[in-house]
Design a protein around this nucleic acid. Structure first.
Lengths: 333, 333
DNA sequence: ATCGTTCGTCGAATCGGTTCGATGAAATCC
DNA sequence: GGATTTCATCGAACCGATTCGACGAACGAT
């Protein structure tokens, strides 16, 4: 292993000087700087992460806690993970991946064993047992997704309330008078993951304001559930011409089933999907969407985390404004 | 921060004794053992990861390198990640997540800064620039997925050659005489990710052996590509009654399009999918599949890695036997 | 009773960095 | 030109664990 001492000897300076060259915390003459950098490169020196963490109380590692139930959301979660990792690297940090399953104890463990400098936590529920734990930790924490009561923890998320309103607004603008919502599965509502409730509120409030009829439905992931759900929906509300799908997992099923029952998109039914933009194109008809900006949310979460590490404390909640992209799946009645 | 010294003082013993209680590397009297454990619990002591790494040259961290192109594979990749994290925790290790984008340099960095004890690398291509790097590292490496030339690196993967044969065998057994393969996108073949080629070989070899007609196709992810691909397929080969889909991403599109063109599954076309079992159910008809055993592969990769860390060196390639589960999407002609 | 083991514990060295105070040389001031 | 400040570098303490050799006490054998 190449140590700082070897670099120092090769460059003919003291180890501390090498350290200062690397960190830039003291001024170094151009000449020695060149010498040291040259030696570093030549020897392929990389500081020992453990030693560095020990001495400086900084690991340059962010812990990311994700929900890894393999059945749900997966693609979207993956996008968040990807963007967090990328953003972290841009800030010279690495990412330690933890799963929600491990519960509060894992947070405790990672924080107090100094495995990571800070935590980014996804999918926090109302009454999440991890919240008190997170508050007790002496490390910066940023939540992705805004729980009902963030208790002073900083959050980043899409403004789902506004998103719900935007979906309704778009369809109402096109003349639709009766709009259904295909929402997340009942389990999501039950778990108290707040984005579902917030979206629903935005949806219904906007519908009331625009004087259009709102028909909210929650929806399991199975094809049969989708199919029978749509059966019932159109039986009970034959006037529905607009569909808002806030559930990426059932999108293919919904579209396939609509087609199967002879309802053309967008001629007979207009569909707005809430999902990452990358999922909009690979369907029989390109989908009009309100984007889930995983990229931005992840990047922003990392930025806030790093800023916290820099000593700036601000427990703000940042809700990103929804962005509607009109594609082929919506049209006027 | 609670240190080992504080624990020692609280228990009235020397720090080294505490260390031995934790590691179990020397015999300790039951009395002091109880005393120390009690203090540890009471103070909420967690050893400082950096200090531990420095002193013992062990981090208890595995680096996992995944392909995070957000467009591709995502769900399957996520399953691997989930299972690796879980298995790692079962072996008392954490997981540092790296992306393929960072290239060989990241591997170098992580290894030689002692951020991780070992590397698990997914999606290694033929002529992957990372292979020479991995070989040069003095740390254990396990590949998930078998590249053409693993160059002596241990691999874990589904036996895709056998999987191709199993798919053909099943359909042939049911009396199908002309079988098409909807494979991964051309880009995958081009990149030299070997599973595509291996599956194809298994598919065509088995078809020849069983004297059935084999029609291989590669397939882009867009809906239009799927649709026009099937157009062409059925135009050129109207006798095709069996379809093997080795491309999770296009599954919904294929099924939706088949239905749209009036070909019923399984009455008119039998479909075998190669995908994780969890994806089999949420379709208009439950799919007969050859499972991609992400769970097992991940667990096995971790196990091999940990065994390597224990000093056992064995550069074996473990190819898991394919498992066919018959569901509703295949039937006799 | 004496010597040699075994057992349990301790103290000190070590891992590879960071950081603070000290120091000598060069630059600046009057 | 002597006093003072600035600049670049060095040496040593320290971070919190692990691990090895040493050592005293208890024990068994003779």
């Amino acid at each position: 292993m190449v140590t700082i001492h070897e670099v120092a000897r090769a460059a003919g300076v003291a180890p501390s000087t090498v350290s200062y060259v690397i960190s830039g915390k003291r001024s170094i003459s151009p000449k020695t700087k060149r010498l040291v950098e040259e030696s570093i490169r030549r020897l392929g020196y990389h500081p020992h992460a453990g030693a560095r963490a020990l001495a400086s109380s900084r690991t340059s590692v962010l812990a990311l806690v994700v929900p890894l139930r393999t059945d749900l959301n997966v693609a979207v979660v993956m996008q968040f993970v990807a963007s967090v990792v990328k953003a972290a690297r841009d800030h010279d940090h690495d990412v330690l991946l933890l799963t929600k399953d491990e519960g509060p104890a894992a947070l405790q463990r990672v924080a107090s064993s100094a495995l990571a400098d800070a935590l980014i936590v996804m999918d926090v529920e109302s009454d999440d047992p991890r919240v008190p734990m997170l508050l007790a930790l002496d490390r910066p924490v940023v939540l992705i997704g805004a729980p009902d009561s963030p208790s002073g923890l900083p959050c980043v998320d899409l403004d789902f309330t506004a998103a719900g309103a935007v979906c309704v607004g778009h369809l109402a603008d096109l003349g639709h008078r009766s709009i259904a919502l295909v929402g997340p599965s009942p389990a999501v509502y039950r778990r108290g993951t707040s984005y579902a409730a917030r979206f629903l509120r935005g949806f219904t409030d906007a519908a009331r304001a625009r004087r259009v009829k709102a028909v909210p439905r929650s929806c399991q992931h199975s094809y049969d559930a989708v199919s029978s759900g749509l059966d019932e929906l159109f039986a009970r509300h034959p006037d529905v011409t607009g569909l808002v799908v806030h559930n990426e997992a059932v999108l293919p099923a919904v579209l396939s089933d609509l087609r199967h029952r002879g309802r053309r998109v967008p001629e007979d039914v207009s569909v707005v999907a809430v999902c990452p933009d990358s999922m909009a194109e690979n369907h029989p008809v390109a989908l009009t969407t309100v984007a889930i900006p995983a990229e931005e949310v992840g990047a922003l979460a990392v930025e806030m985390t790093v800023r916290s590490l820099g000593g700036h404390t601000s427990a703000e909640t940042r809700l990103l404004a929804p962005r509607l992209t009109v594609r082929g799946s919506t049209t006027h009645v």
